[in-house]
Design a protein around this nucleic acid. Structure first.
Lengths: 340, 340
DNA sequence: GCATGGAGCGGAACCGGTTCCGTACCAGCA
DNA sequence: TGCTGGTACGGAACCGGTTCCGCTCCATGC
């Protein structure tokens, strides 16, 4: 099909290209109803579709939001990305997703690429944020919202959950079952970041243990945030001489790996080992036993992030206004912790 | 930071904007080494970054590939999307991902949106493809490659696996263990499509059963392609009066749901129930017991799809050249089928 | 010595829209 | 009737690049 431009439409409707533009965008200038109808008829007849690239070029705007996540294959990030996509669609925007794979330079790569495409805003759910990225963002004068994470380097606008508090809830709950202590499976921090939610989970664990006057030394273990690596680490830990009575994992995905390792070793959960996670991914309800975890409202958070980035997303490295939107987290009790 | 255009660069380097362009794109016109260096110095000094939108506008090309999947949260699609992203990155392209959520109109929506953004090609891994979508693609004269699926409406360029043959392998393998028959958990087809790989899995099951002269009537069950729905269906099926001795699932995700249901019902796998899936998602190695399945080379398929779409992706609804790239599938034997 | 040709570059058209500016036209009012 | 003001619209500049066209300059060949 031959390319149809707005010129063709204007010609057929007997008007100017400007008017066609106003009809398509509903203003801002008044258009006589009769003209409007002629234009619309012409558009339909020719099967005209405006060229988004040209629109973006001329208007210096796009309908795009960039989203950067570490790895969308992990359930938490996948679900978060999906929620952002939904929220964006509700506002007529499309989402570009980039997976950083936890590599800082890939993150900067996507940052650059997205900004070059003139996305109208950026949402970062990222582990690898560093000064390099901050500089990039600053140079482009971009609207950015941090979702779920809040590294130090960049901390103006963020949508986060109460990670420390949520973790405390979970650990306290485990302690109430009378376990002498609760071990913690934290993440492996390539770049230790203040504001990393997962390390905040570790912090929550630490606080809950301290409240109960239980020492934490030697009870913190580490694994990458996914089930596969957590499985390997758990196999060693649980088969070793100091198997903990209970373990709090900083992500559900890790907890799933731990459950799998326990089964492998014929350790009964929750009778011989209590397990809790964090995130309440969909799968947590279908593990065996179902996983006790801490839920966050991903849908609401995604919506908030989209709203913020579109309405008043800030330049990240500019004024330190500290606009942080905090969402509560709540404990979801299932069988893996020994209740019922 | 003030916007820097190539004009500024040209001025600083004492040359024309055209030359700047040739330097950035490495040709096609020769540029004297000295000039090239002056331009590069100017670019660096000014921190100039070309505007992708303007580039796309002027060159009528983009570095974008559109990818439409049903739901990237499902492991298979998530892994496929990741593979495509990798393959595209190797060729310097970026991927726009759209989730159709199995809804045909959302698919057309993304199709339209992506084409409006002048993606240089489209890769469809989609269930909902229909004539509507085909018309849209045709209207835009787009380059399209179908990955993993091959609906009738659109069948020129496709990258697929040997779904029927792979399923036969798995079912034959199950039969060799002496089970009187193998049940099949197929998909729920909103729109029955010839070329739907998952229904091809069912077809493979049917053929393998026929080879062995075993009737298939009443032995085909249906569930949506994810573990959650499959779990529900399996609970009923396995608790009912006609529990099959073995079951072949059309996707691994479904098989995971079946395994979970079996555990819930205290049915031992593989002793009391043999299970096999299809796809060999990463998680299949970590189920309990590990899942026997049929593997396809997603990395190679994704790469092939990217190559096809960039090099000689065809207009889908044009000539019926039937360019189909078939990849073999192979059986991966793990414990869930009773071996070892 | 002069035609030939290719390398290197500047100028300008162009991609397909948006948006500013100016004007024609008509109604309302003095 | 003449002036004012607002409505509807046409013309054209502009967004920031790419790419075509043609010019200059210099080396080469006869």
């Amino acid at each position: 099909m031959a390319k149809v431009t707005r010129d063709d439409v204007a010609r057929l409707a007997g008007t100017s290209t400007a008017v066609v533009s106003y009809v398509i965008n509903n203003g801002p200038r008044p258009v006589a109803p009769a003209t409007r109808e002629r234009v619309q008829a012409a558009i339909k007849e020719l099967g005209y579709r405006p060229d988004r690239v040209a629109q973006a070029m001329a208007s210096r705007r796009t309908e795009l939001i960039g989203l950067i996540v570490p790895d969308a294959r992990q359930p938490f990030f996948g679900e978060m990305a999906h929620a952002v996509e939904q929220a964006a669609a509700e506002r007529g925007k499309m989402v570009l997703v980039g997976n950083s794979d936890y590599v800082a330079e890939r993150e900067v790569h996507y940052l650059r690429a997205f900004l070059g495409m003139r996305v109208s805003g950026l949402i970062l759910v990222s582990h690898a944020l560093n000064d390099n990225a901050a500089a990039e963002i600053d140079a482009w004068d971009a609207r950015v919202v941090l979702l779920h994470e809040r590294p130090e380097a960049i901390d103006d606008v963020a949508v986060v959950t109460d990670d420390i508090g949520g973790a405390q809830l979970a650990v306290r709950h485990l302690l109430e079952h009378g376990h002498p202590y609760v071990a913690c499976l934290g993440g492996v921090a390539e770049t230790p970041l203040v504001g990393d939610p997962v390390s905040d989970h570790v912090e929550g664990w630490r606080r809950a243990m301290q409240e109960a006057r239980i020492p934490t030394e030697g009870r913190l273990f580490e694994a990458p945030y996914n089930r596969y690596d957590a499985y390997q680490v758990a196999l060693e830990l649980l088969a070793g001489p100091h198997r903990p009575p209970a373990i709090f994992c900083s992500t559900d995905d890790q907890a799933i790996g731990v459950l799998r390792a326990a089964r492998e070793l014929r350790i009964e959960v929750p009778e011989e080992l209590a397990v809790a996670g964090f995130d309440d991914v969909k799968e947590a309800a279908l593990t065996d036993p179902p996983l006790t975890t801490v839920a966050t409202d991903r849908t609401a958070m995604a919506r908030a992030a989209v709203d913020l980035v579109l309405d008043d997303g800030l330049r990240v490295a500019g004024s330190r206004r500290e606009r942080v939107k905090l969402f509560p987290s709540r404990l979801v009790v299932r069988r893996s912790c020994g209740c019922r």
